[in-house]
Computed example of a mutant assay.
Amino acid sequence: MENRITDLFRIKYPIIQAGMIWASGWRLASAASNSGILGLLGAGSMYPEVLREHIRKCKQATQAPFGVNVPMLYPDIDKVMKIIVEEGVKIVFTSAGNPKTWTSYLKNHGITVVHVVSSVKFAIKAQEAGVDAVVAEGFEAGGHNGREETTTFTLIPMVREKLSIPLIAAGGIATGRGMLAAMVLGADGVQIGSRFVASEEASSHLLFKQKVVEAQEGDTQLTLKELAPVRLLKNKFFDQVQELYKQSPSSEALRNLLGRGRAKKGMFEGNMDEGELEIGQISGLIHDIRPVSEIVDNIISEYSEVSKYVSRMI
């Protein structure tokens, strides 16, 4: 499956394993890269020196390309970028910030840069900033989302119309059918997050993985838009947020309820009641916990089968 994404990253399949907080450590990223896709380390839940450790372990575990996802709203960004350069990382995905801030610095060190956006407007800005590719992420995605609430099915063709650089679709994709649909709409590849949370190699807690597998349609919702919109599984903490909204709370009141370490408490430590459980709407289609290699094989197999079926229909 050769195209602009496989050429850009030197990978077999145009699939990126998303660099999710509390899930995307070196075991997941290296397993993804060893399966022929691009694995990403999730720097958002790592202190700088922890990131350095994961980069080094990932190098030992795979000879294939891998990268680092860096949410620019997190602290110690200067230290993170310095470590990425020092450790010779060749691919960086940036998100939650202005791509102009770090793109030139990274590219001057020979690093391929991809920026994550949720709108046509910011996709254009990313291209103007000189990134090598853009991830356009729809409203269906788990974790922190854009404020536009544009769905993937709508976003991808609109972004494709405006960009000349490679386009990666994200949000609501976990199967070969979803991958094919995104590429028909104009994407050159896909980024998949939630499906890889429910993998054996993900560093997220087993209780969280099981919760993802049990999720049904409607079990996630976008909330906390006054702070940073985030899609969560509904649980006791989510209910507390909804109760607070009945009082027309200030941003400060919401921030106090959120506190610190909510995501770690839920996704990494396994507190299914009090933790923040970030996952996408596609969790309703995830029914088991499997090794990354099997997940990738199933996606590619379904993609090929459905492609043949569509060709016959035409």
Score class of each variant (00 low, 15 high):
18 A>Y: 00
216 Q>V: 00
189 G>Q: 09
243 E>Y: 01
38 L>D: 00
235 N>S: 03
281 Q>V: 10
285 L>Y: 12
109 H>K: 14
304 S>W: 08
196 F>S: 01
235 N>Q: 09
244 L>Q: 04
256 N>C: 04
243 E>Q: 15
295 I>N: 00
5 I>R: 11
37 I>C: 00
305 E>L: 15
126 A>D: 08
254 L>T: 04
4 R>V: 13
70 V>Q: 01
63 Q>Y: 10
269 E>R: 06
271 N>L: 03
269 E>H: 02
218 G>T: 01
92 V>I: 13
166 P>M: 04
305 E>M: 09
49 E>A: 01
46 M>I: 08
114 V>K: 07
166 P>Q: 09
103 T>S: 03
177 R>G: 13
103 T>L: 04
243 E>F: 01
131 V>D: 10
11 I>S: 05
15 I>D: 03
258 L>R: 07
114 V>H: 09
220 T>H: 11
163 L>Q: 07
312 R>M: 03
64 A>G: 01
211 K>T: 11
201 E>N: 03
98 N>D: 14
181 A>T: 10
101 T>D: 12
240 Q>G: 04
242 Q>E: 15
261 G>N: 05
102 W>N: 09
143 G>T: 11
78 D>K: 15
195 R>L: 04
142 G>L: 07
67 G>W: 05
15 I>E: 01
193 G>V: 12
157 P>M: 10
232 L>Y: 00
310 V>E: 13
17 Q>F: 09
260 R>K: 14
176 G>F: 09
17 Q>I: 02
297 D>G: 06
202 A>S: 15
44 G>D: 03
269 E>N: 07
46 M>K: 10
88 G>L: 03
113 V>P: 05
185 L>G: 03
237 F>H: 04
306 V>A: 04
158 M>V: 11
13 Y>L: 02
199 S>G: 08
255 R>A: 09
129 A>E: 06
74 Y>V: 08
162 K>Q: 02
80 V>M: 13
90 K>H: 05
293 S>N: 14
314 I>D: 03
305 E>K: 15
103 T>A: 03
65 P>A: 02
39 G>M: 05
303 Y>W: 10
294 E>L: 11
147 R>N: 11
257 L>C: 04
102 W>Y: 15
190 V>E: 09
256 N>S: 12
101 T>R: 15
128 E>H: 09
233 L>A: 10
261 G>M: 13
211 K>V: 03
113 V>A: 05
178 G>V: 10
175 T>C: 08
225 K>Q: 13
310 V>C: 12
24 S>Y: 11
284 G>E: 15
56 R>L: 14
263 A>C: 07
24 S>Q: 05
213 V>Y: 12
310 V>I: 15
241 V>F: 12
59 K>T: 08
245 Y>M: 12
121 K>A: 14
287 H>I: 08
211 K>D: 02
69 N>W: 13
168 I>P: 03
153 F>V: 14
36 G>M: 12
253 A>V: 06
63 Q>T: 14
79 K>S: 14
125 K>C: 12
288 D>C: 10
142 G>N: 07
155 L>A: 07
142 G>W: 06
290 R>L: 15
2 E>G: 03
255 R>T: 06
161 E>Q: 14
217 E>P: 01
34 N>M: 14
295 I>D: 01
251 S>C: 06
15 I>Q: 05
38 L>K: 02
11 I>C: 01
264 K>Y: 12
73 L>G: 06
125 K>L: 13
7 D>Q: 14
203 S>A: 14
309 Y>D: 00
206 L>V: 13
179 M>T: 09
126 A>S: 15
37 I>Q: 03
117 V>L: 11
